[in-house]
Design a protein around this nucleic acid. Structure first.
Length: 499
RNA sequence: GACCUGGUAGCUCAGUGGUAGAGCAUCUGACUUUUAAUCAGAGGGUCGCGGGUUCGAUCCCCGCCCGGGUCACCA
C-alpha cells in the first residue's frame, strides 16, 4: 500500500473510532465565540501576568495546522485561514471524552475549543483547553508544513490546498477583495451607478477580439460570451444614465500567458460630458487611492522595479513612441509622415522584424511597432495617447486629425492596465467605421468588429459627449500584490482538462 | 501555434544504463510549556503514459499527456 493510501486509511480509522465513541463527526453547527483572528488581535499584546489576572474564558475554532504531542502535554495550532493560535491540551484539564477525541485528531481536521488564554514559558499566546469539539475530518494527507506547496499546477488546480498551506495566497485574494471594494467606493462617491449588462450577446462587440460561442437551446440561437460590455454601457448613457460603471468578467478566445486568462475582470465606466483628458486625471486619482486603500501605499515593489503611482503619470503619444523607438533601432530619423504612409511604414516594420498582417493599414502597422518596441519598457505609469483611427473603431477622432482618435492606454509594469477614449457619438461616422471593420473581417481578420445595427440606432437617438474607460482588475491586482503571473491573482485560472 | 524547460514517496527535492535516496509527513515507543519539538524504530515508489534500443531503461531514443517560461495574438 502506498504512503498516501496508508495515511488515508489511518485517517478513516480515526474517524470511525470517533463515531464508535458516540461523537457526531459531522455536526451541523458550532457556536464560536471569537475567530482566531479576533483573539490574536484582541489579546496578542497582553502580557502573561495580565492574562493570568483576567483569566477570561473564550472559545474559537479552526483547522489544525500542527500537532505537537509530549505524552501528557500537547499542543495544537489552529487557524481561521488568516491567523494562527496555539491550543494547550492536557488530559487533566479536559473531560475524558474530549481527551479521547484529541488522541484521534489528524493534521488538517477542523475543531472547536473552549478554554482560557495564557502565555507559555516561551511567551506564546495559547488557549488552555477545557473543552474540545470535533467539527469535521480531513481525510486526505496535506502538503508539508515547512516547504508548503510550491507545485504551481497543484496550487492552481486545487486552490484550496494552496490556501490552507500558503498564507501568501490568502493575502493576495484579501488584497484583491479590497481593490474591488475601493474601486466601487471611489466610483460610487463620484456619482456613478453600478450596473450589469449582458454577458451573453448576439453580437460580440466593444473590443477587437475573438469571442467564445455558446448556444441557447429554446431560442435555437448562437450567442457570444462578451468580449466587452462597452456597447451596452453606452446604450445606458443614451438612455440618460450619465455615469455608469460595471465590474465584471470578459471572455476572449485567445492565447493564455502570464498576462492573459481567457476570462478576466474589467471595471468599465462611462461619463457623459467628459473627454479622454478628464479620464487621465481621474485614472491617476483612482489608482493612487485604490493602492493606498488596498495595500496602504502608492509606492509599489514590482519584481525588480519600484513603481510610483503618484500623479502626474508620464504621457507619450503612440506615434512619438513608435517613431523614437524605431529611429533608435534603425539608427536613423523616422518621421510622422512615414508612419502615416502605408507602404513606407510597412517597410519600416519589416526592417524591425514586426509582422505586417495582409489587410493592415498604416495605423495597424504603427500600433504593432509600438507594441513590439515600447510596451515592455513602460514600467512607470505612462499614458500612451492618440491612437490611429484604424485600430479604434469606437473612438472619436481629433478635430484637426481624422487619422487619429482621442484615446489612451495606461501602461504600468510593462503591460496595459487601462484603455480609454472619447466616445464616437456620430452615428454616420460609426456606421462607416463598422463597415471598414467588416471589410477587414472579409480579408480574414477574425478580431474585426461586427456591425451592430441597434448600437448605431442608439447613437441616432443621441449620445452626449462621453468618455469611457476599462481598467483590468486582474492586472491591477498583479501590480499591487507583486505577482508575476495573472494566475496568481485569479482563484481558479483556466487549466487544461486533466485525465 | 513555435521554441526552451520540467514531471522520482502525501509534500519539498537529490540521484543512477545493473535491487530507488533524504528531510518533513505517516505508523510504533519515550517525554507535563513545546513551537520546523527531540530521541529510538518501522512502513511507504507503475521514477507522468505508451512504444523502441539494450542481456538489462527511472536514466538513452521516439511519440503522447500535463505543467512552467519565452515568442506570437491580445487586455
Amino acid at each position: 500500500m502506498s504512503s498516501r493510501d496508508e495515511q488515508i486509511q489511518q485517517r478513516r480509522a480515526n474517524l470511525d473510532a470517533l463515531t464508535r465513541l458516540g461523537v457526531d463527526v459531522y455536526p451541523h453547527r458550532f457556536e464560536r465565540q471569537h475567530t482566531v483572528s479576533e483573539l490574536v488581535a484582541a489579546h496578542g499584546d497582553r502580557t502573561h501576568d495580565d492574562l493570568e489576572a483576567g483569566k477570561t474564558p473564550t472559545g474559537t475554532s479552526g483547522r489544525i495546522l500542527a500537532i505537537r504531542s509530549f505524552g501528557k502535554a500537547n499542543f495544537l495550532v489552529i487557524s481561521d485561514g488568516l491567523a494562527k493560535i496555539q491550543v494547550y491540551i492536557r488530559q487533566d484539564a479536559l473531560p475524558p471524552l474530549d481527551f479521547q477525541i484529541f488522541k484521534l485528531l489528524d493534521f488538517g481536521d477542523w475543531v472547536g475549543v473552549e478554554g482560557r488564554l495564557f502565555r507559555t514559558k516561551t511567551n506564546e499566546l495559547t488557549v488552555w483547553a477545557s473543552r474540545l469539539h470535533f467539527l469535521s475530518k480531513c481525510l486526505l494527507p496535506l502538503p508539508e508544513k515547512w516547504h508548503g506547496l510550491t507545485d504551481v499546477e497543484i496550487r492552481y488546480r486545487q486552490r484550496y490546498l494552496d490556501l490552507i498551506v500558503n498564507p501568501d495566497a490568502r493575502r493576495i485574494f484579501e488584497t484583491r477583495s479590497r481593490v474591488v471594494a475601493a474601486i466601487r467606493a471611489f466610483m460610487t462617491a463620484r456619482g456613478y451607478l453600478e450596473v450589469e449588462t449582458p454577458m451573453m450577446q448576439p453580437i460580440a462587440g466593444g473590443a477587437l477580439a475573438r469571442p467564445f460561442v455558446t448556444h441557447h437551446n429554446t431560442l435555437d440561437m448562437d450567442l457570444y460570451l462578451r468580449v466587452a460590455p462597452e456597447l451596452y454601457l453606452k446604450r445606458l448613457v443614451v438612455g440618460g444614465m450619465e455615469r455608469v460603471f460595471e465590474i465584471n468578467r470578459n471572455f476572449r478566445n485567445e492565447g493564455i500567458s502570464t498576462e492573459h486568462n481567457p476570462e478576466f475582470t474589467m471595471m468599465e465606466f462611462y461619463e457623459a460630458y467628459a473627454d479622454y483628458q478628464v479620464l487621465m486625471t481621474m485614472t491617476e486619482e483612482l489608482l493612487a487611492k485604490v493602492a493606498r486603500e488596498a495595500i496602504g501605499t502608492d509606492q509599489l515593489a514590482f519584481g525588480e522595479h519600484q513603481i510610483s503611482l503618484v500623479a502626474p503619470f508620464a504621457r507619450l503619444s503612440l506615434r512619438d513612441g513608435a517613431r523614437e523607438a524605431a529611429g533608435r533601432r534603425l539608427k536613423r530619423e523616422v518621421t510622422d509622415a512615414e508612419l502615416r504612409d502605408r507602404d513606407r511604414v510597412a517597410v519600416i516594420a519589416t526592417e524591425l522584424g514586426v509582422e505586417v498582417e495582409p489587410g493592415a493599414g498604416a495605423g495597424r502597422i504603427t500600433t504593432g511597432i509600438f507594441e513590439r518596441l515600447c510596451e515592455a519598457r513602460l514600467v512607470q505609469p505612462t499614458f500612451v495617447y492618440d491612437f490611429p483611427t484604424e485600430v479604434s473603431p469606437l473612438s472619436k477622432q481629433k478635430p484637426d486629425d481624422p487619422d487619429t482618435v482621442e484615446r489612451f492606454e495606461l501602461y504600468v509594469g510593462g503591460f496595459e492596465v487601462a484603455n480609454a477614449f472619447s466616445e464616437l457619438n456620430d452615428p454616420v461616422e460609426q456606421r462607416r467605421r463598422f463597415e471598414a471593420q467588416l471589410a477587414n473581417r472579409a480579408k480574414g481578420d477574425l478580431e474585426a468588429h461586427e456591425m451592430d445595427e441597434d448600437y448605431v440606432r442608439a447613437l441616432e437617438y443621441g449620445l452626449p459627449p462621453t468618455a469611457g474607460e476599462g481598467v483590468g482588475i486582474d492586472r491591477l491586482v498583479m501590480l499591487l500584490t507583486n505577482s508575476p503571473s495573472i494566475r496568481d491573482v485569479i482563484l481558479f485560472p483556466l487549466m487544461r482538462k486533466k485525465e
